[in-house]
Design a protein around this nucleic acid. Structure first.
Length: 286
DNA sequence: AGATCGCCCTGCTTGC
DNA sequence: TGCAAGCAGGGCGATC
């Protein structure tokens, strides 16, 4: 499940293998893969054709490729199972190939968007004055963004009437954190996922941010997390950070700090993994 | 208006 | 063996 580190790996791949190339042809093989583009797939393809791809950008889990000499960008989100693959033109189509982008050069490779669960997709948007696609205005800076401000985050966190894991997953507060890295960071910070945000002191918030950054940086160093063949990076190579996860997916396995059996709890139609000893549940609010 | 919930989607796993 | 339910879950729109 791609979160920030995995998406950053993909961004780097796009920068290496796609930026600077001119689009010759776009095939949309599944209409759902084109998001929020009312004029339809043919119009989408026509607007890309002949355009040259600029530097690959990312905020949180969103990727975008500015189109040179326009005020537009191709925006991508991998959703649950999306992959962006640079493949030889003669490679067999993947089973869930949704979009194919060919280039006007002799390199012999093409960009493919492959997505089994179709939660992801590509779209085309006008750029806002800050250069970001206009639909990203509500997406907060991510914790690896040099301009992310810890003090602002803490103030906003305290203002929310919610619990700490909900806040970590709120992309308008901090972007790029998904279920996996939320559980990992909370385990490292010894915080229970239902801890009310109003009880977090500023040092505690900053410490939590440090753990978010550390676990993401570690994942990035090994190419992101993966659990099966669903997620591979832009060149088809799987990451292997999953071998070093401390919380996510470790139900009934011993906590790597204290040996207590880790637990899984249903939470918001997903799961939360935590150590019942290291991450004590908050006292119920009276 | 901020918080919450339901839905989108496919394939693998589990249980009767 | 076969079918149904459960699970994976990010983001968005509707609702309260």
């Amino acid at each position: 499940m791609p979160e920030l580190p995995e998406v950053e790996v993909v961004r780097r791949g796009l920068q290496s293998w796609v930026s600077g190339r001119t689009i010759a042809d776009v095939q949309v093989l599944h209409p759902r893969a084109i998001r929020r583009h009312l004029p339809g797939a043919q119009d989408f393809a026509a607007r890309l054709t002949g355009r040259t791809v600029g530097d690959a950008c990312r905020r949180g889990k969103y990727l975008w490729l500015p189109l040179a000499d326009t005020d537009t960008s191709i925006l991508g989100h991998l959703g649950m199972s999306g992959q962006l693959l640079v493949q030889p033109q003669d490679a067999d189509d993947e089973k869930h190939l949704r979009i194919r982008i060919r280039f006007a050069d002799p390199l012999g490779t093409e960009l493919r968007f492959v997505d089994q669960r179709t939660f992801g997709g590509l779209s085309l948007h006008e750029n806002a004055p800050d250069g970001l696609p206009d639909v990203l205005s509500h997406i907060a800076r991510d914790p690896l963004d040099p301009l992310f401000d810890d003090a602002t985050f803490h103030t906003a966190l305290r203002a929310r009437r919610t619990t700490v894991k909900r806040a970590l997953l709120d992309q308008s507060l901090i972007s790029g954190v998904g279920n996996i890295y939320a559980d990992e960071a909370l385990w490292r910070a010894r915080l229970h996922y239902e801890r009310p945000t109003t009880t977090l002191t500023r040092p505690r918030s900053v410490e939590l941010l440090r753990h978010v950054r550390e676990v993401m940086t570690a994942a990035l160093a090994v190419g992101g997390t993966t659990f099966d063949s669903l997620y591979v990076n832009v060149n088809g190579e799987s990451g292997y950070f999953d071998r070093s996860l401390d919380a996510y997916g470790r139900e009934d396995e011993p906590c790597r700090r204290c040996g207590t059996a880790m637990r899984r709890r249903p939470w918001m139609n997903r799961s939360s993994y935590f150590c019942p000893r290291c991450q004590r549940a908050p006292r119920p609010v009276a």
